[in-house]
Design a protein around this nucleic acid. Sequence first.
DNA 1: TATACATACTTTCCGATTAAACAATTGCCA
DNA 2: TGGCAATTGTTTAATCGGAAAGTATGTATA
Lengths: 138, 138
Amino acid sequence: MQRRPLNEHLSHLLAQANRHISRQFSAEGVSFDQWRLMMALSEEGGSTMGKLADELAINHPTLTKLVDRMVEEALVYRVPDPEDRRKVRMFLSDKGAALLEIQNSRVQLHEARVEGSFGNEDLQKLRRMLETFIKQIS
Amino acid sequence: MQRRPLNEHLSHLLAQANRHISRQFSAEGVSFDQWRLMMALSEEGGSTMGKLADELAINHPTLTKLVDRMVEEALVYRVPDPEDRRKVRMFLSDKGAALLEIQNSRVQLHEARVEGSFGNEDLQKLRRMLETFIKQIS
DNA sequence: TATACATACTTTCCGATTAAACAATTGCCA
DNA sequence: TGGCAATTGTTTAATCGGAAAGTATGTATA
C-alpha cells in the first residue's frame, strides 16, 4: 500500500526546497515571484501577461495582481499592444532594473554557497533533470 | 550583472515544478499540504505541531489552521501531551487513512509516469541532490 | 456582414497565508 | 522556592491567492 516515505517523494523534496527559498526572498524585501517576474522581463521586455503567466507558472489573475502592486511601486509598466488591443506588454522600469541588480547580488551569494556543494557537472545534470520533470508534469 | 537566464536558476526550476504539482493535487480534491501532512502522520503518529511544521516547511500558524480544517473533516485529531501540556500530538484518523490510500493510488500513477523518464539511478541521485540542497538552504 | 466562438486580461468573492501579538506551560538558576 | 526566559501552540489583523465570472477585442463561419 505505497509504503514509500514522504522524504523519498520528489514532490515533497521540491516543496521543501521551494518554501525555504521563498522565505529567504521575502526576508530580503523582494518576493520570489517579484524577482522571477523582473528576471523574465529583464531577459525579454514586451512579454504579454499570458506568456509570463505560463513561463512563471503563475495563475493569470494572480499575475495581474502581482503586476498591479509592482506597477504601483513603479518597478514594471504596462503597454497596450497596438496590433492586438487585448494584449498587454510588460516592461521593466529603470527602477525595477536597479532593484533587480541589488537582488541579484544577494541571489548570487546564496547560490554560490548552495551550488558549491555540487560539482558543475552535477549541477547541470540536476537542472536538466528538473527541466525534464517539469515538461512531464506540465 | 548576473546575466544568467532565469531558466538556469535552480530556484526557478524548483518553483515551476512545485506549482505544477500543487495544481495537480488541488484538481484531485486533496491539497498538496493536506497530503503531505497525512503522509507524515501515517509514517509517525503522535508528532507535535512544531515537528510537523519543520518537517513540512509550513509556518506554525498556517499549520494550526490547516489542522483545524482537517479536524473538522475528521481526517486527523489532536491529543494533548500528558507530560508536557504545551504540546499537541497529532494523529491520522481512520477516515484520514482511508482518504490517504485513495490519494496515494493517484500519486502513484503520476509518479510512475513522471519518474519513468528517469532511470532508477538518476532518480536516486536527483533525490540525494535535492536533500543536499535543502540542508544547505535551511 | 452578422452571429457565434475564441482569446487576453481583469475583477470579484471567498478562503488561505503571513507576521505579529498573545496565552499557557515548562525549565533554569539565583 | 520565586521569578524570568524559553518553548509550544493559537489567535488576530491585514494581505495574498485561486476559481469563476466578466469585459473587451479578435477570428471564423455561414
